[in-house]
Write a protein that binds this DNA or RNA. Structure first.
Lengths: 148, 148
DNA sequence: TGAATATAGTAGCAGTTGCTATTATATCAT
DNA sequence: ATGATATAATAGCAACTGCTACTATATTCA
């Protein structure tokens, strides 16, 4: 069954999301929102387009994630002074407060998910999945080049 | 960065879905629908509940996937003669026709995704991700038991 | 300068996913 | 038998995701 890898990845990702969301239900923030926040933490002032590229989602997907985070007062859109089409993204103080609590939740969940795996196996898992991701990421780029 | 595994899995799964959907755009069927069909192929007559358990999604999620597949005339709901609350799921002839074409698409995509990985590495990837999935799957069960 | 092209972001539409609550039916206990 | 409980499936709501089409602004080239 050669299709298993795709299904497997999808399953584990979904179970991961589900488990994370169950643990942070009260916080009003989801796994993927938290992810965006952690990225933003290290790239404050980034525009939406580059951020979408960074986390490899479509611009419109990011746009709507930001909508919800702005609504929740975790992210702020500021007009880019150099380009009136663009927004720059910033975290609010509230986001900073959330970060640390989420962090330990995520760490605990990761530990649970990798229970029974040695450190070497974890490294290997990350390495292999990263290579798969890179392959799939590359495909998208090729597709774009073909169009051009 | 210990949260990386969750994010990584999510990324690769999403890129996988995206690539699959891009390749089968004309067919009117998505990656996840195709997945359900392949499971159904080997479990015809199964009820929705057990099928949801099999693919580890919530019953309501499965219910709506089935809605769409019924709409597309790929799946048929038949009343369970032994339980008037339940449906039994069957594939239509049209689903059978789709299966073979999808199959080669999926195989090709899997090959692309695992390009550069040796056979041993593929096996290892599957093994490791399966163990992660099992860990996360177990957590859900424990949570349910706690509630009871 | 002014027209063609490119870029940043969004709107509409649709599929996937899960939580909570609800309906209908079945089973169990008394 | 009947009242309590459990189960099968669905409804409402909301988040995530991407495709296509669109608006507004910027850039390029003639």
């Amino acid at each position: 069954m050669s299709e298993t890898i795709g299904f497997l990845l999808n399953d584990s990702a979904r179970l991961f999301r589900r488990a994370f969301n169950a643990r942070t239900k009260g916080s009003g923030i989801t796994a993927l929102q938290w992810r965006l926040i952690t990225y933003l933490k290290r790239h404050e002032g980034i525009r939406q387009g580059p951020m979408a590229e960074l986390i490899e989602v479509e611009p419109i997907t990011l746009s709507r994630m930001v909508d919800r985070l702005v609504e929740a007062e975790l992210v702020e859109r500021r007009a880019d002074p150099a380009d009136r089409r663009a927004w720059q993204l910033y975290l609010t103080a509230r986001a900073g407060e959330l970060l640390s609590g989420m962090r330990s939740t995520a760490d605990a969940l990761t530990a649970e998910a990798t229970e029974g795996l040695s450190a070497a196996e974890c490294d290997q898992l990350i390495d292999l999945v990263e290579r798969v991701r890179a392959n799939l990421s590359r495909r998208i780029c090729q597709k774009e080049n073909e169009t051009a």
